[in-house]
Design a protein around this nucleic acid. Structure first.
Lengths: 238, 238
DNA sequence: AATCTCCTTTGGTCTATACCAGAAGTGGTA
DNA sequence: TACCACTTCTGGTATAGACCAAAGGAGATT
């Protein structure tokens, strides 16, 4: 079929408005019913078009509030350890951090394995969400071996946790193993980032290894349109 | 709302069948209309449930053929350079490669910039698709600076292109810069991997830098459920 | 055995409508 | 000015049905 289907046409119209600047970054799109009326299409077609653009990373939705034009993604090197806030500042973005919870809790099985703890061991868990330019885009959950991080929960947990690990606890010589996969948000995660359950996201796991032992296990869930990973390699002769 | 919505229930039923082994990895799910009849739900609910599971990476579809249970993802370190085929063998997987095209072509603007070529310069382009255990999961497109790779198109392009770069062309000391983002497949890409346009995928770009110059620009599109990236860091003191 | 034709099955697209429930807006009141 | 109640707006969920078009299967033919 050479001609576009209806929802493709609707998507193309909206995309064109975005690229032309008529719909600026961060601005709200017409409502679903508004699109139906303006373009004379059914609501299913309007929704399919919006879902298509969402999958492309061009728009995002706030749950039951509306659809918005996605800003440019945040450029992020997950293998680096410097402060995310500094990274954002370098990109003319503004990063804010909100501590959601910090407590001593039973380790989930996966975390217990990574931290080489028994199934019933306790760990220290810090959960934070972060916004870029006012939009919640990242939910992070960090698990710490209690014995390696005494008094962790009494420290300022809204700054660079990496800096804490290095400076306050002295773990200077360490390695990070990183996992990256596509993983939509579950209901709890979605609620924290003000989006719908099932919203597309990238899951990033980071294990901090010191002397061959994993002492911190971290999971980051990034809204998929908000991030672009960029890893600068090092010269090898292999 | 504490109770599940209808399509969530349908998804939960299917997911339970998958986890119990009743629906084995790689096996075909009941058709959409079959699910409607069996569970007494509308086709919209059946489809929503399937889309939900697809987003989770649990199932995949072959275009107009049916839905299938996703096998375990292939574990892939994009920062390493050894042969994908060897990597697959190490994971008891079977990787096949099919050359789609290899030709001298005008460089797309993005590629021209990376390779530091003028807008009208020609490059050598190699396009391949790769399957894991018989399922097309990866579409890769590599662009080479013509002057750095004379006679490239007359070589065997179904093996390790990395090995070619290193051994046949002598570029031993090099660096790779990698980009990772979430990017669904366009119509052409989807067709090559036998899936529907818009299927969720991870886009991986890799620039090969030698003596400060980019000599190869590569793009890989992986079906999102078929891959899990795992990057082993190196010990730093930072 | 290979090819061709026809039929069936499959997901894709579309229509119109209705109702739910969360979020915000508005106006009134203290 | 702050709070509350109500309304409106928003996306979410669901129904029933129809038709399209690609892919494969089956049977016939060469």
């Amino acid at each position: 079929m050479n001609s576009l289907t209806t929802y493709h046409s609707v998507a193309a119209r909206l995309q064109s408005s975005i690229h032309s600047g008529e719909l600026a970054s961060g601005s709200k799109l017409p409502s679903e019913r508004g699109i139906c009326e303006q373009l004379g299409v059914s609501r299913v077609n309007a929704r399919d078009a919006l879902h298509f653009l969402e999958a492309q990373g061009l728009i995002y939705r706030l749950n039951r509030i509306g659809w918005f034009v996605s800003p440019a993604p945040f450029i992020y090197d997950p293998t680096q350890t410097h402060s995310l806030r500094d990274e954002a500042r370098a990109q003319n973005r503004q990063l804010e951090t909100e501590l959601i919870s910090a407590n001593r809790t039973a380790a989930p099985a996966v975390i217990a394995r990574k931290l080489e703890l028994s199934a019933t061991a306790a760990v220290l868990n810090v959960v934070r969400r972060r916004s870029v330019d006012g939009r919640w885009v990242l939910l992070e959950s960090c698990y710490y071996r209690e014995e390696d991080f005494p008094d962790l929960l009494s420290k300022d947990l809204t700054g660079s946790l990496n800096a804490l690990v290095r400076d306050a606890y002295g773990f200077k010589k360490r390695r990070q193993d990183i996992g990256i996969s596509s993983k939509p948000l579950n209901q709890t995660q979605a609620q924290q980032l003000q989006v719908r359950e099932g919203s597309p996201a990238l899951k990033l796991s980071r294990d901090l290894i010191v002397d061959g032992r994993c002492i911190v296990a971290e999971t980051e869930h990034w809204l998929h349109d908000a991030i672009e990973m960029s890893i600068r390699g090092r010269t090898t002769a292999g």
